[in-house]
Structure formats: C-alpha cells, structure tokens
Amino acid sequence: MLLVEQIIKIWSKYSTVFLDGLTGTLWISAVTVFFGTLLGMMWALVQLSKVRPLTTIYGWYVGLIRGTPILLQLYFFWLWLPKALPLELSNTQCVIVALVVNSSAYVAEVIRAGIQAVDFGQTEAAKSLGLSNRNMMCYVILPQAVKNILPALCNEFISMIKQTSLASVFFVSELTTSFKTVQSITFLAIPPLIISGMIYLVVITFLSKMVNLFEGRLRVSD
C-alpha cells in the first residue's frame, strides 16, 4: 500500500520530469531510426551492388556492430567523437551518432533480407521482359520488398525506444534518466523506477499493437 501511495505522490509531483524524459526518449529514437534508416539504405545498396571489396566492408561493418555490445559502442563514440571532431559535442549528440551507427547495421540487414525475400521468379520475369536493372528494382522488386521491410523498420523503432535507456549512463535527457533524477531528489528508488517502467510498457505496447495492425493491412493487399 505504501508503495502505491509513494508512486502516486511522486507522479503527481514530478510528472513533468517523466513526461520530459519520455519526450526525450521518443525524440532520440525517432531521429536515430530516421538517420539510421538513411545510412542503412546506403549500406544495403553497397551490399546489393555485389562489388567485391564493398560487400566485404559491409560484412565487417555489420559483423562489428552486431558482434559488440551497444553500451560499448556508446562509450566509444562518447569518448572518441569529441576528440576526432573539432566541434563542441553534447553527450546527446555523441549518443545519437552511436545509436545511428548501431541502428544502420540492423536496418541494412532488414532491407537486404526484405529484398532477398522477394521471390526470385519476379527477377527472372522482369529480366525476361527486358526491364533494365534499375526499372526492375524500382517497379518490381522494391514495391514488393517494402511490405517485408516496413513492419521490421517499425519494430526497429520500438526496440530503439528501449535501447535509448542506455543513454542514461551519459545523463542524456530521456526516460531512464528521469528515474535517476527523481531518485536523487526524493531518495526513493523503486517508485520512480516503476513509473518509468510503466511508461515504457504503455508506449511500447501501444506501438506494437499499431505495428501489428499495420502489418495486417499490408497482408491484406498480398
């Protein structure tokens, strides 16, 4: 009973801290997935070009990103980027760069898999009609691949919402940092933790439902 009371009390007093945190989380996730998708598309093109040295580099890149913990990647960019660039970079900017790089590797794989999942017969039919490679991609393969890719991209956005909690390590303003902030003010740990957790749960459950609905609608047109 005490816990519930504490939660209600903390929420009524510090709700703006949590809502600001949520805004930060959603904003960082959206920016990350947007640029991650752009970069991921470029990587996917690199891979699909089938040019030997490029595809090898792609393999290393994806292997490196997926083969190391994301927290380590965040530390790396946080430490290295301010040294490498002659700019004043905020923690948030360093973290976003790291998340974009991380996300791009996953997005590239999503796009690659989405394109390769299109039946090879479609490629053959397009070629037999004399379509150029470009037209085949734009008018036959990609429109079909999009149906595989879009739901997976939405899921990438959802998982990014969870990944951004790691940014709290660098005191970037987001939902997990909100918990830490409120904890340090109130000296209570569990209630703000639960509040942050519940906000994540509500948002992610809602978005997952939306993706399922969206996926269902894509299926219908199959």
């Binding site: 479609q122 053959e124 037999s128 036959v140 079909q144």
Partner: peptide
C-alpha cells in the same frame, strides 16, 4: 513464360 507464372502480385 514460366512454369510458376511469375506474374507481378503488386
């Protein structure tokens, strides 16, 4: 013309 038609479903 192919055995499995390969018409464009979209």
């Amino acid at each position: 013309v192919f055995q499995h038609f390969n018409v464009f479903p979209h």
